[in-house]
Structures are given as structure tokens and as C-alpha cells.
Design a protein around this nucleic acid. Sequence first.
DNA 1: GTCCGGTGTGAAAGCGCTCTCACGACCGGC
DNA 2: GCCGGTCGTGAGAGCGCTTTCACACCGGAC
Lengths: 341, 341
Amino acid sequence: MTTLAGRASSPTLDEVAELAGVSRATVSRVVNGSPKVRPEARRAVEEAVARLRYVPNPAARSLVTRRTDTIALVLSESDTQVFSDPFFARVVRELSAALADTEMNLVLLAARGEREQEKVARYVRQGHVDGVILMSLHSQDTLPAVLAEAQVPLVLSGRPLDGRTVCYVDADNAGGAREATEHLLAGGRRRIATVSGPQDMIAGIDRHAGYRAALEAAGIAPDADLVATGDFTEAGGARAMALLLERAPDIDAVFVASDPMAVGALRTLRESGRSVPGDVAVVGFDDAAVAATSDPPLTTVAQPLDEMTRLMTDLLLRQVEGDAEVQARVCPTRLVVRASA
Amino acid sequence: MTTLAGRASSPTLDEVAELAGVSRATVSRVVNGSPKVRPEARRAVEEAVARLRYVPNPAARSLVTRRTDTIALVLSESDTQVFSDPFFARVVRELSAALADTEMNLVLLAARGEREQEKVARYVRQGHVDGVILMSLHSQDTLPAVLAEAQVPLVLSGRPLDGRTVCYVDADNAGGAREATEHLLAGGRRRIATVSGPQDMIAGIDRHAGYRAALEAAGIAPDADLVATGDFTEAGGARAMALLLERAPDIDAVFVASDPMAVGALRTLRESGRSVPGDVAVVGFDDAAVAATSDPPLTTVAQPLDEMTRLMTDLLLRQVEGDAEVQARVCPTRLVVRASA
DNA sequence: GTCCGGTGTGAAAGCGCTCTCACGACCGGC
DNA sequence: GCCGGTCGTGAGAGCGCTTTCACACCGGAC
């Protein structure tokens, strides 16, 4: 009577060794692709492995190698809805593609709320994974600090708000926002409003800073009436736009800090009887799928998301290999001009 | 010089034992909450654990316990966009909630494309997880069969198409569709069309079957002109609806196999100048968030998704505990009547 | 013939943990 | 005062693997 009734347990190295007529060490060498094995021995082992349907026990292996060959993408967010963000889906896709011809496995960890964050932190501290890519959106999130302390290879997606020295990859949010605003200025617009993102998120903060910097450089004084804050959702964008129109009906352009919000803004503008870009020019951010299909198609700022993801993967794997230098990388954005501005 | 330069390795049981002045066995007992330890010994150990910041090594532990205390939610789908499905987000949320006060950890595994599916299969077969909840949408997906063979505790989300005997939980798609169609009949509608889902997905098949069953029971002969197939997206629903209107302009109701498609259908109907529910009554499926906010609000079929998720968790954990009986559970749906029908 | 370096192999140690088993201490009952 | 029965504890085996180390073997240089 074994512990787990009915569950067939996989054969061990020893059994394979016996069947192949070699030692455990040789089997191990074959399984791990060591070159120092005679071809005939190798064949015998391979045959035995196939016959017994041998699969190495990862627990035993990582007990000695100190590696798990697994990295985690952890998503720290109070709201599971973030999954719905196509942004996230793209990161997952690119990440698993980058890992496809590696030994590395990818697991996703969702940490919403304090309890789950603790659970994830414990999971990582225990050494279940060799490294983690952390997507943490809000400034009050404690997970980045906890994981940074855990001595585990770590790459952040997005610049950390507290300026701690960790490895991260981010888009040049400020630069992109500035370029977007400059594009509006170049189009002759002068009353340029903004729907900015939440100011406890780095993307919200940086994009707003870029907008202000562009205006300042053009010698235009900031006007609080021209600033409304949204929550990166379409509904939030629509509301913020309505607020702006109420406060400053004479605006001729608006920089919206995300495409979903921009779509909402377009709706509000349409409902108010204004034409885009005739009366009001609109620029979004992210180059999300909706940007191309909205009415009118959205001029927006594209982030090199795939490149950023590959970069994160790269930085992380290098850390896992023992290359310990901490790097920060900021990737340039690109203005995609469509019909809305 | 240790293997992984710079990475501080966690203390071991032995070091804790030495500091606490007890044996390794006693430390293990304390860490695992065994009652057979004298209070003073327990305190000494706890103190030592805290002082050394001891965390048990899961590889060593699972090498002997044969457990990993981790279950996987695997998402087998060619398209990572599925993440965007709020459906999925709800399952993740409920699942981690159910596991919150358990020892169990949850990891998500994305398997799109053949290579990744193989990788996931290997991951599971190696025994990285104690069990898996598998969401596989399409009939040609081989992962369900592979995992079923892997002898690992398994619960499927959704009835398997090939009728194999595995544990699964599903909503009563056929029953729900039938009830929806009967609701249309009860409202006096007689030319009842349907926008069905992909016929290689169990939800698509069953919902279509329910629609047909209701018509048949009412003595209405099936009419191929009244059937169009969508892909569960809003755009697909809009296209399918347009097709239906072209083929049968006289329809007075439509059962749409998902809410996003229903929203698309509403748009097409509006554009064709028809009123809902005046000219055409519409019933959707899923009770997604959009159903309540669409114009008009959608009458739809709600699945007890949270309950289903808890049920899956439950069935899986029971299997993990060694309770091996294979069960299938089909949960009743509920018609939510709003304005559209 | 001896010596050499290289090459493939096996014995064995040990990774950090759990858990059985044996043992001593202590209790109450006779 | 002796015996059976807890109860807490520690010694030690062993989980399945990697990896070091020593060794046997071989062909070529001298």
C-alpha cells in the first residue's frame, strides 16, 4: 500500500539504468545530453527510457541543481479584470514564444489583494521559480519591494515609482506623450486638453508629465481646466471628456493617455456634436487594436511591446544565469498618425 | 565558492535545529504544525526560524511527500486573446479565492499552439503540479486526452466532446438555450432565428441543440435560413445577424449563443432600422457584463460560473486527496429577463 | 616495453526534507 | 516497587537525482 493509492508513480533513474545495463550516472548523462557517452550506451539508455516512459523527477533534480527551470510572470493588481487587457495577452504571448526553445517553463501568478500577494511572495521566496517578471501597476503595491528583497532574479515591467534600483523595462511614456502633444501643436492647435491616467500609476504620471513638458516648451502656460483624470477605461475616458467640454468648451485638441479612454472621448465628442479632427483633434496612447478600427481611426503612440517583452525575458534569463548587473531600459515609442489628429 | 554566486541560499532545517537546540525532526514537526511538541521546544524553534528567516525548500519536501501543493489552471487555446474573456478572469478570481485558505498554490499555464501544449504536457507529466483544471475550447485540441492519460488529477471545464470518461463541470448549455428559445416562443414569436457559436466547440454545439429542441417541441420545423454561425465575438455576431436579415427579413426573434455576439446583433438590427424587442426579440447567453449595459439591456442565460468554479476546485482537491471517483456535473442555468425579449 | 593523456564509466556522496521507529522519561494502577 | 502506557524526542533511512572522483581501458609516443 503506497501513499497515493492508484496513482502510478514514474520509474526512477535506477530502473532505467538496470534495464539499460548501465549505471545511474550514465543514464543521467544521457538524459541531460552530456556528450561523454558511448553511442551504444546512449542508444541502450534511450531505448530503456522510451520503454519505461521515464520522466525525470523535477523535485529531485532541483534539489541538487538549485534550479527549477521555471520563471513566473506575476500580475499584481487588485482587479483580475486586468487579464482582459490585450496588453497583458500580448506580453504572455511574446514571453512564451521567447521561452519556446528554451528549457524554461512559464507560469502565471495572479496576486490580487493582500492575501494572495503574500501567497505569491511566499511561493517565490521558497524558490519555486528561478526568476520573476513582475507587472505591478499601482504605487501602493508592496509586492515589488518584497520580491526585490527576496534575492530572486527580478525584472519589472514599468519603471518603479519609488526609484529603487531594480531591473526594469519601460516605454518612454513621457517622450511619447510629449511627441503626441507636439504633433497637436504642429497641427496648429492651441487649446490642448488632456485626459490623463490615474496619478498613482507610473504610466499615468509619465504621460501627463510629457504633455506638460511639450506645452511648456511651446510657451503655453498650464491650465488646470484642461486636465481631467480617467481610469484607463473607455467609460472613464468618456466621463473625463464630458468634464473637459463642460469646463472648457473651446478646446481644439485633446491628448488622451490611453486608447480605450480615447475611444470613450471620441464618443463624448460625437455626442456633443463636435467633429474629429475638424473641431477637436484627438491623440491616444498604446496603439491598441481599437485604435485602428475606431471612428475616426485614432492617431496614437505605439510602444514596442514585443521588443520590450523580449528585452525583459533577456534581462531575466541573464540574471538567472548569474549575470547580476541591474539594468534599466527605456524603449522609444513611435507616433502612429491616423485620422483623428 | 558556491554554485550560484551571490544568491544567498536559505538556511536548512539542520541549522535551525542547531540554533534551537533540538533535532531536525522536531523542527520539521513544528514547521508542519504537528501537535506532539512541547510548548517550550516549539517556542525555541519558532524563534530560530524567525531569526534565520528560514523557508522550507519545496523541492526537498516534495521529493519525499510526493506532493507539490500546487495546482494548475491550464488554458489551451490557439489564441491568447482568450485571456481577454471576462469569463476567464472570473474563473481565476473564484479559483484563487477558493484556494486562499488552503496550502494550495495556483499557477496558470498558457498553451497556445502545439509546441506550447507539449511543453505544458511535459510540465504536468513531470509532476510539477498535483492536479489540473483544464479549459480547452476546441474539439481538435489534443491536450485533454494527453493529460487524461498522464494519470494526474484532472477536471475539465466544459463537457469533453469525445465523450471520454473524465471529470468535468459544465453549465447546462442545451437546457439554457432551450429555455431561452421557449421564452421567445412564449412571447408569441414564430420566426425564430439563431446566431450559433462555432460548431467545433461544445458550448456552440449544445446551445444550438437546445435551440432546435425547443422549436421541435413546439412543432416548428427547422429552417436552415434561420441559422447563422458566429465566432463568439461581437463582430462575428454583427456579421451573422446581417446574413440572417438578408436571408430572412421576416424574422421576429433571434437566439444568440453569446452576449458579445448578441451585442453585435443588436447593432446590426439597429442599423437595419428594426426595433428591439418590437420588431425582433433578442436573447443572449452568458450574462456577461455587457448584457446589463447594452441598448436595450439583454435578456440572457446566466451560468452559475462561481459555483461551477468552486465545484471544479472541490472535485479536483478531492481527487488530489486520493478520492478517485470520476464525476461529471452539469449546473443549471437561469434565464435573466431584461428588455430585449 | 613503459609512460602518458584522454575517454567512458560506476561508486558513492549528498542535496534538504519527512517519517518511522526506538528510546527514555514519566504517569497511574496494582 | 514493578509494570504497561502514554508522550516527546532524536537517530537514521531514504525520496530521485547530479556530480565528483577514481578507475579501467585504450592508443600512441618514446
